[in-house]
Design a protein around this nucleic acid. Sequence first.
DNA 1: TCAATTGATAACTCATTGGCTATTGATCGC
DNA 2: GCGATCAATAGCCAATGAGTTATCAATTGA
Lengths: 107, 107
Amino acid sequence: MPQPYEILFKTLADPTRRAIFERLCRDGEQTVKTLTARAGVSQPAVSKHLGVLRRAGMVRDRHEGRQTHYSAQLGALAPLVDWTQQMAGFWQSRFDDLEDLLERMDQ
Amino acid sequence: MPQPYEILFKTLADPTRRAIFERLCRDGEQTVKTLTARAGVSQPAVSKHLGVLRRAGMVRDRHEGRQTHYSAQLGALAPLVDWTQQMAGFWQSRFDDLEDLLERMDQ
DNA sequence: TCAATTGATAACTCATTGGCTATTGATCGC
DNA sequence: GCGATCAATAGCCAATGAGTTATCAATTGA
């Protein structure tokens, strides 16, 4: 099974795509048209990024007539937090191990 | 000035490179040789990844004779935490705005 | 001293990907 | 119904980047 944060890191690596996600977090639900207006790239490029974000579970789409509204799924960031905490945990436990060792040497 | 998390996302996007960083967090300081033994790629590939990690400020190198010891710099992950909290903050404030609106409508 | 070890760099290949234009499908307003 | 609008897809291109092998520089030890 693939790590859940694997796809998150890949998806967030592109600045344009990350900017789109940030905008959805900041301003809430947006149509492709409004997103395109400020993205600095063409509409197909925006659609492609939104597709990547959607497949990563980071956004939801809602169809309404001919427009599609996208919104951020904040919960999708959880694996990122978990990963960071795990790294910090490794760090801490190595520190603890060192403390244990020094303590035992001290006796 | 470039966003501090920009380079972090890019650096962490590659699985091999992220695995090297994880290993340094988990097991502490390692030489290039020991890292190469488990990386699944050639020594030059490992060196290249370590160079990327170093330029991103995520690892430090320490030269000792002909070997180079690398160690993780956990503090480098701070911008990642900041970014995540910022996204959560946007989310929360939009929620607050909605609450305010509903409250005012309720009067 | 000289062979072996360690790690970095050079030079190259190949796959991935982010961008574009063109087009299609679908829906809306007149 | 028909032209306009909105979004997705197809097809293409160029840049990036991760991997390789070959090689070099530096250090070690026999």
